[in-house]
Amino acid sequence: MSIPGLLHLELEVRPNDDGWFKESFHGARLAAAGVPPFEVRQHNVLYLAEAGITRGIHAEPWDKYLSPAAGRVFAAIVDLRDGDRFGRVETFELGAGQALYVPRGCGNSFCTLEPHTVYNLLMNEFWSPQRVGVDLFDPELGIEWPFPRERLSYTERDAANPSLAGVRARRA
């Protein structure tokens, strides 16, 4: 990974007669895979009815552990921490068998790839409105979203996020 602390994890999904089962979060196994100590303080679940629902880019003052329970997402992570890796982007396609550990200060964004996606977000701090946002479509980031912009559904708040250059200038 080119973003320090970002981990992409493969999870075992075991089929059964009723569907499947996975251990989404197993502290000892995650520690063995390199995830730092992570005390879950809040667990959010998003149900997203349509493909193309897009959220982010948000960097909050907590670490996140993300994994779909159903459906698939395209995730784009942007390093927004000070340093020479500021602005670096990593993208992933996540299904039920994958998870991401995203360290605090890295911007998280996602786009649903199919309808009826259920996305789990575990955080090691309680939610607060503190965050740094970056424009989903900033050409400096070069994120190739899986659908054309006019097919994406995003919030006005996310659309108003500053460019990467704007975030950089605010810190100078």
Rank of each mutant, 00 (worst) to 15 (best):
V89P: 00
A96S: 15
T112N: 07
A51G: 07
Q130G: 14
H58N: 12
P36G: 09
A51M: 02
P68K: 01
F137G: 04
N120I: 09
M1Y: 11
W145A: 08
A49R: 07
Q98L: 08
A33W: 02
S153G: 15
H26W: 13
T91A: 07
L121Q: 13
L66D: 09
V89S: 01
Q98F: 08
P162K: 02
N124G: 11
T117E: 07
E156L: 11
L141A: 06
D17A: 15
G166P: 10
L11Q: 09
E10W: 12
F74D: 06
V132F: 08
H8I: 07
A96T: 14
L30S: 03
V89K: 00
G83E: 10
E156M: 10
E10D: 15
N16E: 10
N120E: 11
W62Q: 03
E10Q: 14
A59P: 05
E60F: 04
L152W: 02
D138L: 05
A75L: 06
P162W: 02
R168K: 11
S163A: 05
Y47T: 15
A31G: 13
P15M: 10
P115S: 11
R104T: 09
T54V: 08
T117W: 01
S2F: 09
L66A: 11
V89R: 00
V118R: 02
I77T: 03
L66W: 04
L80Y: 00
A33I: 05
G19W: 09
F21L: 14
N16S: 10
H58Y: 10
D18G: 15
L164P: 04
C106I: 00
C106K: 00
R168H: 12
D82K: 08
V45N: 12
